[in-house]
Design a protein around this nucleic acid. Structure first.
Lengths: 252, 252
DNA sequence: ATACGACTTTGAGGCCTCTCAATGACGTCA
DNA sequence: TGACGTCATTGAGAGGCCTCAAAGTCGTAT
């Protein structure tokens, strides 16, 4: 409701000055229109590891863009266990799946210290009325998410443990690369347990696959630090497409 | 491109006269606005079993509503096998996942004789500019689809064969009920093979689960005819929610 | 009506991944 | 810096589902 004046603190970079603007929502707007988006964005304090952005069942009010750090979304299974539904890196948008309900269907939690841009949905809709391009971008984001979820369903129903983890690593790598980071070596923000949870595998299986991948020279892993040593092989395992062509990113 | 005059043939029922209007796109429009939607809708000849509505890679031009019959969407895995991504019943909308690409990411094929309403997307977008409510409805459809896909991911990563099939049957039942049909007994439009493909199970497993369910008095199945004999148990297996509360439907 | 093909069912055996268990490494905080 | 808790690794065993194979059923077309 309150569109906070645009306080320029280190943590409060304006959209036009944000290094992620070409990946994030502003990409749908012209330079001069970006400021309008900028004014409705709320930039809260950084979330510490483990803090929640919203909880499953909270009233749906906003969508969020990750500015730095990493967020996971999860929901509770019938048995009360946690089921992770997505990982979100800087420039990626989350919260859109709550749009047709009054409440968020998942919880969102910081996996490390994380800065967030909050976009109140009501105002985003108003802005969408002015800028058809923004509206189309939002729909494209959701459409892309649907396709990505279907890729994920394919992974879960057809791929074995090796292929799942290869796919996961390649996907992460291209998302890092898209943000201008190395796709060869990066740091996982999630634990083996979280990775397994997301991929439908037991922790022990994840660990065993990592060990095997290292023995075969596909990757090198020291704790959460990952280095891809044979991207060709890894991509082949992941199922076809190489790391080279224009990378994939995730949103919504 | 051509908005065909509204020919009243048996197969060309106007939206306002369509029994599905309260479930389909028109639900976002007032009575008098429905006619505008009606005029952009193209109603082709019925598709025969096995005919394709569109193929993976075809240029994205329209979204589609199923009027009668049933459609499956599928994509090819890396090994060239078919992976079914969804089943669509009357009043349900498909094709939205192609929105952010130039081409459909899946193929759509009739599982039986099927009547389709085609909505050219460009004109739907124009109409969306006039009717914010229609626009919001489209976004809600996509948002709902995202949530449903996440349910599916949960099914694939956490549920065993019995639970998957129970979930699938309960889901189908509530979709039938929503359309005013019996949720106790209905006819499957898909083969055991297609069901298994969709659920990430081998045909033989599907068959064995069906046999077991019948032995336990959960269902009775003669070919594709299904009768749910113990919905309480079946719902429990599916994971909690009963069949009674307001049912779930699928779209996009 | 009959024959063919597609679909379904049932059985046997094997493999992949899970579960349980214990040890080892890491990171954090007093 | 040391101790604790969390996370990661490794091993052994079991179980669920897949694969392969064959027989049975259904639907359809000639």
């Amino acid at each position: 409701m309150t569109s906070k004046p645009n306080v320029r603190q280190p943590s409060h970079v304006a959209c036009r000055d944000c290094s992620l603007s070409s990946l994030c929502l502003p990409l749908a707007l012209s330079i001069k229109d970006i400021d309008q988006l900028d004014h409705i964005i709320k930039r809260g304090r950084p979330l510490k590891k483990g803090e929640h952005l919203f909880l499953e069942g909270d009233p749906f009010t906003s969508v969020f863009a990750v500015r730095s750090g990493a967020i996971k979304t999860y929901t509770a299974t019938n048995e009360g266990e946690e089921q992770i539904t997505g990982f979100y890196l800087p420039s990626e948008i989350l919260g859109l799946s709550g749009m047709d309900t009054d409440t968020y269907p998942v919880s969102a939690q910081a996996m490390e210290t994380t800065m967030i841009c909050e976009i109140p949905f009501e105002q985003l809709e108003t802005l969408s009325d002015q800028f058809p391009e923004l509206r189309r971008h939002l729909m494209r984001l959701m459409s892309k998410r649907i396709r990505e979820d279907q890729q994920m369903m394919m992974l879960l129903s057809k791929k074995n443990a090796d292929e799942r983890i290869a796919t996961f690593l390649i996907n992460l790598a291209s998302r890092f690369r898209r943000r201008g980071f190395s796709s060869q070596s990066f740091r996982l923000s999630m634990s083996r347990n979280e990775m397994g949870n997301y991929l439908g595998l037991a922790v022990e299986t994840v660990s065993r696959v990592f060990t095997r991948f290292q023995k075969n020279g596909l990757i090198s892993a020291v704790g959460k630090e990952i280095e891809i040593r044979n991207s060709v092989e890894l991509c082949a395992l992941a199922g076809g497409k190489t790391l080279e062509p224009n990378p994939i990113a995730t949103s919504a």
